[in-house]
Design a protein around this nucleic acid. Structure first.
Lengths: 335, 335
DNA sequence: TGATTAAATCGAACCGGTTCGATTGAGCCC
DNA sequence: GGGCTCAATCGAACCGGTTCGATTTAATCA
């Protein structure tokens, strides 16, 4: 609990000199520096980060805000960010909004109150009020995953249109025509883009989409399960189901197993996004995955760049869009 | 960015009165209270949490320290803690040590520097230096998951001995005798207890354990995979494998599938701990699960109790040990 | 009505750092 | 030797709250 004043007293210099020695040693004489060093060691001084943040108006913390830290997608990104941040003397504070917009906002506000140096944010909010709030923040922010129209910030994510299109094309090539799509929330960019990839690819192939084959899975387990059941009980069943994310696809697989459908013999299944332990899920689901490590690396570098470089703060926002990767499984059969 | 002094000026009272009105309204007259309220609304004042923490020597943050936030076990606990904490005006800061002891310590130190009100800690360290460090902290701490001998703090966890014993007994009842056990790190309490449950139950049944049937899986994916392979290539193969946690068990399942073993026809498999999407993994693995929601609730209540009650801080540490639950699957066959 | 006490409010010090303008002193040039 | 510059150091104000002893105001009682 030694303070900077204890150090100053022991080293017989002023408090400001100690502070200067710590933040900019080059401007303090060798002799004094040495005295201060010894005094610091003698009293066991460690600067109080709270006091530093208050005085500086900035802390060395980076806020990481997502809807579900348990999701391995976010987990990988968090790890990359953290490793990079630690290398640059910054500390990552993780918060989880559980997908609730109001909670997300409260958490961002709290992080701002903590005077975080920057924010990595996967936004779930979208109303004007929220956008204005984000726009008004005077802190480096890198958004990722969800591209929200109206947020003028750096964005890092994947080409979701392509992801949807790739899987659709694959199913078409296998001879499927009655392809169903389980969507995500319509206010989410990833959801609409993935659906657009599906719809346009179908249209380009001249295949009409049965309106009953597009059901809303909300990216959640319960809604996904419900959506799958709704598809499976139809008299003219789809031959393939495309899940807009991992959660709805796995819910679909569960629903299929429960009703006694075999995959891929009876119905084929494909999904966007990876899932933990996908290798032990039977069948191995054909999927398109995002390069989470690359995404995390870009987020980390971009954010630290803005934080560390004086001119980095004023650079215009930039989009980084990565190409997702097709990973074949054995959940899609040729018709 | 309005400060308390702006409020004081506008309400024509002293700064200290405003502060008092905020922290203890009962001690300020109605009239003054109203003036202050209006002034606060007029200038849009929000107290700076950093300044508050510095002055008070305590913040309203709770540190949550685990080795892997992505693990659903920790995720469930985190959610419970967070919900409870938010209801009590506290904010949870999540940190992930990635299982590295030195990083965990750095993170705890950082959280202490932030003057967190309390810590929920799943310790991974165990050397004396670390124990002394934890012992020396003058902050409410609730440890969970890993019971570390030498840490005199509240502990919340499951009866791991019982967990190991239950599954072993189950396999014995099904007629298995050649049962293999994939262990976790020997310095982890959960690992040793689970193994003890296995070993003693076997001994009590008068069944000798083949030393080659106990291999170290380190609770990790790679080591678990290696351990499984080591078991599967033995000429006198086990008829059942018991994984000390979910990760090593799933790695085992993967190894079995890769080598062409069928589960449970060729080899039975059981594990301790649940796993996300266990319902879609084929076969459904027989397991013993912890009641994560109950654990999270106890951790939350215990920690907030110590934080909020003046006398809570000095209560002697207490252990809360919950009974795990047997969840049958179809991964164990009768011999 | 004056003394006594409790309630309301205030002022100043404090938490532990940072920052910037002012001061001191050494070195250099003419 | 006087004037000038630059490096080293210092003092004081500041960041935005809290806290506590002191002071003022209001209420109670003899």
């Amino acid at each position: 609990m030694a303070t900077i004043r204890d150090v100053a007293k022991l080293a017989d210099v002023s408090v400001s000199t100690v502070s200067l020695a710590l933040s900019n040693p080059a401007r303090v004489s060798q002799k004094t520096l040495e005295k201060i060093r010894q005094a610091i060691a003698a009293v066991g001084f460690v600067a109080d980060p709270l006091a530093q943040s208050l005085a500086r108006g900035r802390s060395r913390m980076i806020g990481f805000v997502v809807g579900n830290v348990g999701n391995p997608f976010f987990g990988d990104i968090r790890r990359e960010l953290e490793n990079y941040a630690l290398d640059h003397q910054h500390f990552v504070v993780v918060t989880d909004s559980s997908g609730k917009t109001d909670r997300e906002r409260a958490m961002v506000e709290h992080l701002i109150g903590l005077k975080t140096a920057g924010l990595a944010l996967a936004p779930s909010g979208y109303d004007q009020d929220y956008l204005d709030f984000i726009a008004g923040l005077n802190v480096p922010i890198v958004c990722f995953d969800q591209k929200v129209a109206g947020i003028e910030r750096d964005f890092v994510g994947s080409d979701n249109y392509l992801a949807g299109a790739m899987l659709t094309e694959h199913l078409l090539q296998l001879g499927h025509r009655r392809i169903a799509f389980i969507t995500g929330p319509s206010h989410m960019h990833t959801a609409t883009e993935r659906y657009r990839g599906f719809a346009e690819t179908m249209a380009n192939a001249g295949v009409e989409v049965n309106p009953n084959f597009v059901v809303d899975g909300q990216f959640t387990r319960t809604a996904g399960y419900e959506a799958a059941m709704r598809l499976l009980i139809q008299p003219e069943r789809p031959t393939a189901i495309l899940g807009a994310n991992n959660t709805v696809a796995l819910s679909t697989l569960q629903a299929m197993q429960e009703l006694g459908f075999r995959c891929p013999e009876d119905i084929s299944l494909a999904m966007i996004d990876n899932v933990q332990w996908s290798s032990v899920i039977t069948p191995r689901i054909t999927m398109v995955v995002q390069d989470t490590l690359a995404l995390g690396g870009i987020i980390a570098r971009r954010l630290m760049h803005r934080i560390s470089n004086p001119q980095g703060a004023v650079e215009p926002p930039q989009d980084f869009v990565l190409t997702p990767k097709f990973v074949p499984g054995n959940s899609c059969r040729r018709l």
